[in-house]
Design a protein around this nucleic acid. Structure first.
Lengths: 137, 137
DNA sequence: CTCTGTGCAAAGCGTTTGCAAACGA
DNA sequence: TCGTTTGCAAACGCTTTGCACAGAG
Protein backbone atom coordinates (compact mmCIF):
# COMPACT_ATOMS: atom_id res chain seq x y z
CA UNK A 1 0.00 0.00 0.00
CA UNK A 2 2.85 2.39 0.73
CA UNK A 3 4.48 4.03 -2.17
CA UNK A 4 2.14 6.57 -3.68
CA UNK A 5 4.10 9.54 -4.80
CA UNK A 6 2.09 12.39 -3.40
CA UNK A 7 3.99 15.09 -5.25
CA UNK A 8 3.09 13.53 -8.56
CA UNK A 9 -0.41 12.67 -7.49
CA UNK A 10 -1.08 16.28 -6.52
CA UNK A 11 0.48 17.61 -9.68
CA UNK A 12 -1.67 15.27 -11.73
CA UNK A 13 -4.74 16.86 -10.20
CA UNK A 14 -3.50 20.46 -10.57
CA UNK A 15 -2.81 20.96 -6.92
CA UNK A 16 0.41 22.27 -5.45
CA UNK A 17 2.35 19.93 -3.22
CA UNK A 18 2.46 21.62 0.16
CA UNK A 19 3.71 19.83 3.28
CA UNK A 20 0.16 19.99 4.69
CA UNK A 21 -1.22 18.18 1.67
CA UNK A 22 1.47 15.53 1.66
CA UNK A 23 0.78 14.70 5.30
CA UNK A 24 -2.92 14.84 4.56
CA UNK A 25 -2.62 12.21 1.83
CA UNK A 26 -0.20 10.13 3.82
CA UNK A 27 -2.64 9.87 6.74
CA UNK A 28 -5.45 9.04 4.38
CA UNK A 29 -3.46 6.31 2.71
CA UNK A 30 -2.38 4.85 6.04
CA UNK A 31 -5.82 4.87 7.62
CA UNK A 32 -8.08 4.20 4.70
CA UNK A 33 -11.30 6.02 5.49
CA UNK A 34 -11.28 9.04 7.75
CA UNK A 35 -13.84 11.59 8.79
CA UNK A 36 -12.90 15.26 8.72
CA UNK A 37 -12.54 15.20 12.48
CA UNK A 38 -10.25 12.17 12.49
CA UNK A 39 -8.18 13.57 9.68
CA UNK A 40 -7.75 16.87 11.45
CA UNK A 41 -6.72 15.14 14.65
CA UNK A 42 -4.12 13.03 12.89
CA UNK A 43 -2.69 15.91 10.90
CA UNK A 44 -2.45 18.13 13.98
CA UNK A 45 -0.39 15.49 15.73
CA UNK A 46 2.19 15.96 13.01
CA UNK A 47 1.90 19.70 12.30
CA UNK A 48 0.07 21.24 15.25
CA UNK A 49 -0.11 24.60 13.50
CA UNK A 50 -2.40 23.57 10.63
CA UNK A 51 -5.64 25.46 10.72
CA UNK A 52 -9.03 23.86 10.46
CA UNK A 53 -9.78 26.08 7.49
CA UNK A 54 -6.89 24.53 5.61
CA UNK A 55 -8.20 21.04 6.26
CA UNK A 56 -11.57 22.01 4.85
CA UNK A 57 -10.13 23.86 1.90
CA UNK A 58 -8.00 20.88 1.03
CA UNK A 59 -10.78 18.35 1.35
CA UNK A 60 -13.00 20.46 -0.86
CA UNK A 61 -10.30 21.09 -3.43
CA UNK A 62 -9.32 17.45 -3.62
CA UNK A 63 -12.87 16.15 -3.82
CA UNK A 64 -13.63 18.69 -6.52
CA UNK A 65 -10.59 17.69 -8.56
CA UNK A 66 -11.40 14.03 -8.07
CA UNK A 67 -8.33 13.10 -6.05
CA UNK A 68 -10.53 12.22 -3.07
CA UNK A 69 -13.88 10.48 -2.91
CA UNK A 70 -16.53 11.08 -0.31
CA UNK A 71 -17.83 7.90 1.30
CA UNK A 72 -21.32 8.13 2.75
CA UNK A 73 -22.16 5.48 5.29
CA UNK A 74 -25.27 4.84 7.36
CA UNK A 75 -25.19 6.16 10.94
CA UNK A 76 -21.79 7.68 10.41
CA UNK A 77 -20.20 10.92 9.36
CA UNK A 78 -18.90 11.22 5.84
CA UNK A 79 -15.49 9.75 5.34
CA UNK A 80 -12.89 10.38 2.68
CA UNK A 81 -10.60 8.12 0.72
CA UNK A 82 -8.07 8.54 -2.04
CA UNK A 83 -9.95 7.80 -5.24
CA UNK A 84 -9.37 4.31 -6.58
CA UNK A 85 -11.15 1.76 -8.73
CA UNK A 86 -14.85 1.36 -8.05
CA UNK A 87 -15.37 -0.84 -5.03
CA UNK A 88 -17.83 -1.61 -2.28
CA UNK A 89 -17.54 -0.76 1.40
CA UNK A 90 -18.14 -2.88 4.43
CA UNK A 91 -18.94 -1.29 7.77
CA UNK A 92 -18.94 -3.26 10.99
CA UNK A 93 -21.95 -2.39 13.10
CA UNK A 94 -20.08 -3.27 16.29
CA UNK A 95 -16.71 -1.58 15.94
CA UNK A 96 -17.49 0.82 13.04
CA UNK A 97 -14.46 -0.34 11.12
CA UNK A 98 -14.69 0.32 7.38
CA UNK A 99 -13.11 -1.92 4.77
CA UNK A 100 -12.88 -1.90 1.01
CA UNK A 101 -14.50 -4.82 -0.71
CA UNK A 102 -13.79 -5.68 -4.29
CA UNK A 103 -16.83 -7.60 -5.40
CA UNK A 104 -18.33 -8.09 -8.80
CA UNK A 105 -21.56 -6.17 -9.25
CA UNK A 106 -22.31 -7.23 -12.82
CA UNK A 107 -24.92 -9.68 -11.57
CA UNK A 108 -27.04 -6.82 -10.24
CA UNK A 109 -27.47 -5.38 -13.68
CA UNK A 110 -29.26 -8.42 -14.99
CA UNK A 111 -32.32 -8.10 -12.86
CA UNK A 112 -33.11 -4.44 -13.35
CA UNK A 113 -36.23 -4.17 -15.40
CA UNK A 114 -36.22 -0.41 -15.80
CA UNK A 115 -34.89 1.25 -18.89
CA UNK A 116 -32.01 3.14 -17.34
CA UNK A 117 -28.39 3.76 -18.22
CA UNK A 118 -26.13 2.60 -15.41
CA UNK A 119 -22.97 4.61 -14.82
CA UNK A 120 -21.87 3.37 -11.44
CA UNK A 121 -23.07 1.33 -8.49
CA UNK A 122 -22.37 2.22 -4.87
CA UNK A 123 -22.57 -0.67 -2.47
CA UNK A 124 -22.36 -0.55 1.32
CA UNK A 125 -22.53 -3.79 3.24
CA UNK A 126 -23.47 -3.58 6.90
CA UNK A 127 -22.63 -6.41 9.21
CA UNK A 128 -20.21 -7.78 11.75
CA UNK A 129 -16.53 -8.16 11.05
CA UNK A 130 -14.57 -11.33 11.77
CA UNK A 131 -12.94 -10.02 14.95
CA UNK A 132 -16.21 -8.83 16.45
CA UNK A 133 -17.91 -12.11 15.57
CA UNK A 134 -15.28 -14.00 17.51
CA UNK A 135 -15.65 -11.76 20.53
CA UNK A 136 -19.36 -12.49 20.69
CA UNK A 137 -18.89 -16.17 21.36
CA UNK B 1 -49.64 4.08 -3.14
CA UNK B 2 -52.30 6.05 -1.32
CA UNK B 3 -53.90 4.44 1.62
CA UNK B 4 -51.46 4.33 4.48
CA UNK B 5 -53.27 5.07 7.67
CA UNK B 6 -51.02 7.62 9.29
CA UNK B 7 -52.82 7.59 12.61
CA UNK B 8 -52.18 3.91 13.00
CA UNK B 9 -48.70 4.09 11.59
CA UNK B 10 -47.75 6.75 14.13
CA UNK B 11 -49.36 4.88 16.97
CA UNK B 12 -47.47 1.75 15.99
CA UNK B 13 -44.23 3.65 16.44
CA UNK B 14 -45.24 5.30 19.73
CA UNK B 15 -45.75 8.72 18.29
CA UNK B 16 -48.80 10.90 18.74
CA UNK B 17 -50.78 11.73 15.64
CA UNK B 18 -50.57 15.50 15.31
CA UNK B 19 -51.80 17.32 12.19
CA UNK B 20 -48.19 18.30 11.44
CA UNK B 21 -47.10 14.69 11.46
CA UNK B 22 -49.94 13.50 9.30
CA UNK B 23 -49.15 16.11 6.66
CA UNK B 24 -45.49 15.28 7.05
CA UNK B 25 -46.09 11.61 6.24
CA UNK B 26 -48.55 12.40 3.52
CA UNK B 27 -46.01 14.54 1.69
CA UNK B 28 -43.36 11.91 2.13
CA UNK B 29 -45.61 9.21 0.74
CA UNK B 30 -46.63 11.36 -2.21
CA UNK B 31 -43.11 12.44 -3.13
CA UNK B 32 -41.05 9.45 -2.23
CA UNK B 33 -37.68 10.82 -1.22
CA UNK B 34 -37.39 14.32 0.16
CA UNK B 35 -34.62 16.35 1.71
CA UNK B 36 -35.33 18.29 4.90
CA UNK B 37 -35.50 21.47 2.87
CA UNK B 38 -37.99 20.07 0.37
CA UNK B 39 -40.08 18.55 3.10
CA UNK B 40 -40.21 21.82 4.99
CA UNK B 41 -41.21 23.71 1.88
CA UNK B 42 -44.02 21.31 1.09
CA UNK B 43 -45.35 21.24 4.63
CA UNK B 44 -45.29 25.03 4.91
CA UNK B 45 -47.44 25.29 1.81
CA UNK B 46 -50.10 23.43 3.73
CA UNK B 47 -49.60 24.74 7.28
CA UNK B 48 -47.52 27.93 6.98
CA UNK B 49 -47.21 28.17 10.75
CA UNK B 50 -45.12 25.02 11.29
CA UNK B 51 -41.77 25.84 12.74
CA UNK B 52 -38.50 24.54 11.40
CA UNK B 53 -37.75 23.11 14.82
CA UNK B 54 -40.83 20.93 14.60
CA UNK B 55 -39.73 19.56 11.24
CA UNK B 56 -36.37 18.61 12.71
CA UNK B 57 -37.84 17.19 15.87
CA UNK B 58 -40.20 15.04 13.86
CA UNK B 59 -37.57 13.80 11.45
CA UNK B 60 -35.33 12.85 14.34
CA UNK B 61 -38.09 11.19 16.32
CA UNK B 62 -39.34 9.20 13.34
CA UNK B 63 -35.89 8.09 12.23
CA UNK B 64 -35.09 7.06 15.78
CA UNK B 65 -38.27 5.03 16.09
CA UNK B 66 -37.68 3.47 12.71
CA UNK B 67 -40.71 4.94 10.96
CA UNK B 68 -38.44 6.85 8.57
CA UNK B 69 -35.20 5.84 6.90
CA UNK B 70 -32.41 8.16 5.97
CA UNK B 71 -31.24 7.79 2.38
CA UNK B 72 -27.68 8.88 1.70
CA UNK B 73 -26.90 9.59 -1.92
CA UNK B 74 -23.72 10.79 -3.63
CA UNK B 75 -23.57 14.53 -4.40
CA UNK B 76 -26.88 15.11 -2.74
CA UNK B 77 -28.31 16.02 0.63
CA UNK B 78 -29.75 13.27 2.77
CA UNK B 79 -33.27 12.34 1.90
CA UNK B 80 -35.96 10.60 3.92
CA UNK B 81 -38.46 7.91 3.10
CA UNK B 82 -41.08 5.98 4.98
CA UNK B 83 -39.38 2.73 5.96
CA UNK B 84 -40.26 -0.19 3.73
CA UNK B 85 -38.73 -3.48 2.64
CA UNK B 86 -35.02 -3.36 1.85
CA UNK B 87 -34.51 -1.99 -1.64
CA UNK B 88 -31.98 -0.23 -3.83
CA UNK B 89 -32.08 3.36 -5.04
CA UNK B 90 -31.49 4.80 -8.45
CA UNK B 91 -30.44 8.41 -8.87
CA UNK B 92 -30.44 10.12 -12.24
CA UNK B 93 -27.30 12.17 -12.70
CA UNK B 94 -29.09 14.55 -15.06
CA UNK B 95 -32.35 15.36 -13.31
CA UNK B 96 -31.55 14.09 -9.79
CA UNK B 97 -34.72 12.06 -9.67
CA UNK B 98 -34.61 9.21 -7.17
CA UNK B 99 -36.43 5.94 -7.65
CA UNK B 100 -36.80 2.75 -5.66
CA UNK B 101 -35.43 -0.34 -7.29
CA UNK B 102 -36.34 -3.79 -6.10
CA UNK B 103 -33.44 -5.93 -7.23
CA UNK B 104 -32.11 -9.16 -5.89
CA UNK B 105 -28.79 -8.72 -4.13
CA UNK B 106 -28.23 -12.37 -3.18
CA UNK B 107 -25.73 -12.74 -6.00
CA UNK B 108 -23.40 -10.24 -4.35
CA UNK B 109 -22.98 -12.43 -1.32
CA UNK B 110 -21.44 -15.24 -3.27
CA UNK B 111 -18.31 -13.44 -4.25
CA UNK B 112 -17.30 -11.98 -0.93
CA UNK B 113 -14.21 -13.76 0.25
CA UNK B 114 -14.00 -12.14 3.67
CA UNK B 115 -15.31 -13.81 6.74
CA UNK B 116 -18.01 -11.35 7.66
CA UNK B 117 -21.61 -11.54 8.80
CA UNK B 118 -23.85 -9.62 6.42
CA UNK B 119 -26.84 -7.89 7.95
CA UNK B 120 -27.92 -5.58 5.17
CA UNK B 121 -26.76 -4.25 1.82
CA UNK B 122 -27.29 -0.67 0.66
CA UNK B 123 -27.18 -0.18 -3.07
CA UNK B 124 -27.25 3.10 -4.96
CA UNK B 125 -27.19 3.01 -8.74
CA UNK B 126 -26.12 6.18 -10.50
CA UNK B 127 -27.02 6.72 -14.10
CA UNK B 128 -29.44 8.33 -16.52
CA UNK B 129 -33.16 7.78 -16.36
CA UNK B 130 -35.26 6.87 -19.36
CA UNK B 131 -36.69 10.36 -19.87
CA UNK B 132 -33.30 12.04 -19.75
CA UNK B 133 -31.83 9.47 -22.13
CA UNK B 134 -34.50 10.29 -24.67
CA UNK B 135 -33.87 14.01 -24.38
CA UNK B 136 -30.23 13.53 -25.17
CA UNK B 137 -30.87 12.17 -28.65
C1' DC C 1 7.85 36.72 -9.93
C1' DT C 2 3.21 35.07 -9.93
C1' DC C 3 -0.25 32.51 -8.37
C1' DT C 4 -1.79 29.28 -5.06
C1' DG C 5 -2.11 27.86 -0.39
C1' DT C 6 -2.04 28.90 4.59
C1' DG C 7 -3.60 30.70 9.10
C1' DC C 8 -6.48 33.52 11.64
C1' DA C 9 -10.71 35.48 12.97
C1' DA C 10 -15.21 36.52 11.73
C1' DA C 11 -19.27 35.30 9.42
C1' DG C 12 -22.68 31.93 7.85
C1' DC C 13 -25.95 28.48 8.01
C1' DG C 14 -28.17 24.27 9.16
C1' DT C 15 -29.53 22.01 13.36
C1' DT C 16 -30.54 21.67 18.26
C1' DT C 17 -32.15 23.22 22.73
C1' DG C 18 -34.98 25.36 26.52
C1' DC C 19 -39.11 26.93 27.75
C1' DA C 20 -44.05 28.15 28.04
C1' DA C 21 -48.25 27.28 25.88
C1' DA C 22 -51.21 24.04 23.22
C1' DC C 23 -52.72 19.65 22.30
C1' DG C 24 -53.54 14.42 21.93
C1' DA C 25 -54.96 10.36 24.25
C1' DT D 1 -55.47 15.18 33.54
C1' DC D 2 -50.71 13.92 32.15
C1' DG D 3 -47.25 13.43 29.08
C1' DT D 4 -46.07 14.78 24.49
C1' DT D 5 -45.64 18.12 20.87
C1' DT D 6 -45.43 22.73 19.13
C1' DG D 7 -43.47 27.37 18.15
C1' DC D 8 -40.30 30.75 19.19
C1' DA D 9 -35.83 32.51 19.99
C1' DA D 10 -31.45 31.74 21.44
C1' DA D 11 -27.54 28.81 21.34
C1' DC D 12 -24.55 25.63 19.04
C1' DG D 13 -21.26 23.52 16.06
C1' DC D 14 -19.54 22.62 11.75
C1' DT D 15 -18.09 24.82 7.52
C1' DT D 16 -16.95 28.77 4.74
C1' DT D 17 -15.08 33.31 3.76
C1' DG D 18 -11.92 37.44 3.53
C1' DC D 19 -7.70 39.02 4.03
C1' DA D 20 -2.65 39.45 4.66
C1' DC D 21 1.32 36.76 4.56
C1' DA D 22 4.06 32.65 3.18
C1' DG D 23 5.46 29.36 -0.01
C1' DA D 24 5.47 26.47 -4.43
C1' DG D 25 6.65 26.39 -9.15
Amino acid sequence: MKGLNYQELLKKYDLKATPQRVIFLNELEKNGHLSIEELEEKIKKIIPSVSTATIYKNINAMVEKGLLSEVKLPNSKNRYEITKDSHAHFICEKCSKVEDLYIDDECLKNNIDKNIVINDIDIVIKGICEECSKKEL
